[in-house]
């Protein structure tokens, strides 16, 4: 009797757990469905190759924000990956109170709200340089990417067995080359996927760009001038009062989600494929 009750309770709670878990499929489905449905309707070839037009005019595309997004990602990548890898190596190679503190600070930086990163990009670059720019946006994004790269580098390099280092030393290799040519290549898969995960994290970010990259209806590849970015365009257009602009925002959302999705798949592939066997 009592046993039956217990088993019943067990079953009931399992069903509840399954129910709640499965219901998270719902928002995912709705979001993806809405974006794909509205997005595909908005997209044609010209959508990718033309610039925005003033409200009320027909057509208009997102070429400037696609280019801008890539420009921003490249700037962030160029700043965050060498610096992040360097700090990652430092944290694996040196162990003392200072590096313990740094490890905590990496976690702290990862938790800083993205809008604050925007303010930092503004104070660090926009204000001294006297204007909005792709560079400032890239810097703000690099700050968000940095902890991801550092953490992944550190965690991967920690897994590289010490006997490889010893083997390298025993051949008369100096410390520098041992780290750069043995340890780092052995952990390259992890380091690389860390960079990709970092890019993934910032690819859809809007908040850090609001008052750094700022937006720009024209095509620009000069890092010292403002640029548009897909997330920025989606925000500006979605908040506008114009119907045609919503359409473009849906198209841009679709493109952005596709970029994120493709990056995710590439990352997974690399994580699996590049995993060095020891």
């Amino acid at each position: 009797m009592n046993l039956k009750r217990r088993i019943l309770k067990d079953k009931l709670l399992k069903i509840l757990v399954i129910f709640f878990s499965l219901s998270t499929l719902l928002p995912l489905f709705f979001v993806l469905f809405t974006v794909v449905k509205n997005g595909i309707a908005a997209i044609d070839l010209k959508f990718f190759t033309s610039l925005p037009v003033p409200a009320g005019e027909q057509g208009g595309g997102i070429l400037n924000s696609i280019v801008g997004t890539f420009l921003l990602l490249i700037i962030a990548f160029l700043i965050a990956s060498p610096f992040g890898i360097l700090v990652g190596i430092f944290l694996t190679e040196v162990q003392n109170k200072f590096t313990d503190l740094l490890k905590i600070l990496v976690n702290v930086l990862q938790g800083v709200p993205s809008i604050v990163m925007g303010i930092i990009g503004y104070l660090l670059v926009v204000k001294p340089m006297g204007g909005f720019s792709a560079l400032s946006g890239g810097v703000a994004l690099a700050f968000m990417m940095l902890p991801v790269v550092i953490k992944n580098t550190e965690e991967t390099l920690r897994l590289v067995p010490s006997y490889l280092k010893e083997a390298s030393f025993s051949l008369g290799t100096n410390y520098t080359r041992t780290i750069l040519r043995v340890v780092l290549p052995a952990g390259m898969g992890g380091v690389f996927s860390g960079i990709l995960i970092g890019i993934l994290r910032i690819a859809g970010e809007t908040a850090p760009l609001l008052f750094t990259a700022f937006g720009n209806p024209f095509l620009n590849i000069n890092p010292l001038k403002p640029v548009d970015a897909l997330p920025l365009l989606i925000f500006n257009y979605a908040m506008s009062p114009y119907e045609d602009w919503y359409k473009i925002a849906w198209g841009a959302s679709f493109v952005l989600i596709m970029i994120v999705l493709i990056l995710t798949i590439i990352t997974k592939f690399i994580v699996r494929r590049w995993k060095t066997q020891f």
């Binding site: 979001v31 809405t34 993934l200 859809g204 970010e205 809007t206 997330p231 989600i257 994120v260 999705l261």
Partner: peptide, 10 residues
């Protein structure tokens, strides 16, 4: 993975 701005738009 879905960007924040798309959640907002949706």
């Amino acid at each position: 993975g879905i960007p924040s701005v798309i959640y907002g738009f949706w």
